[in-house]
Amino acid sequence: MSLHRKTNPLETLVLDRHIDLVEKCRTGSSKAQYELYRLYSRSMFSVAMRILNDTGDAEDVLQESFIDAFDKLNSFRSESTFGAWLKRIVINNSINYLRARRVKFEDIDMHPEVDIEDETFDEEEITLKVDEVRRAIQQLADGYRTVLTLYLFEGYDHEEIAEILKVSESTSRTQYIRAKKRLLEILKQ
């Protein structure tokens, strides 16, 4: 059983309440636009911050993403929640910024010496605290941080991450395990 879910039932319930706000935005209401921004800016900014690790870039991405969302609102078909849809825009824009920073997401299947089993880590002895975990994430390399945040925080599975980053699914898996190991190492220090 995976801990991760595509949509949290609670999240869906909360977000569905915003559907009429979305409808008002479609008519160009700037008041409704601000309402949606107010509701989602913090969580979306946090998504961008975790991936980009840079306030300026994350703010640029947040701005672009909301403008994209308001512009493309007609293509939002309520198949997913508005939040999930918006989050995907934020993530895509963040990844584009990372790529502009020359961060490369490459397949690592070429390296058979990587033995995943050996890379598991004993998590038992580490006390976890939100602030410490958050700070440890900031110390991860861009590639690790991206995969870890998409899987651990944004609820994407490896198949989806592979699609977003255009790498293979096994690369996503391996990168995640390594990123997590590195994170726990940092936390242990």
């Binding site: 913090r42 994350a58 947040l62």
Partner: peptide, 18 residues
């Protein structure tokens, strides 16, 4: 974990563009 707050400037830019 969602503790990051964007500056007020972000909304101003969005509003201006829209």
């Amino acid at each position: 974990f969602d503790v990051y707050e964007p500056s007020a400037e972000v909304w101003r830019s969005i509003e201006k563009t829209m």
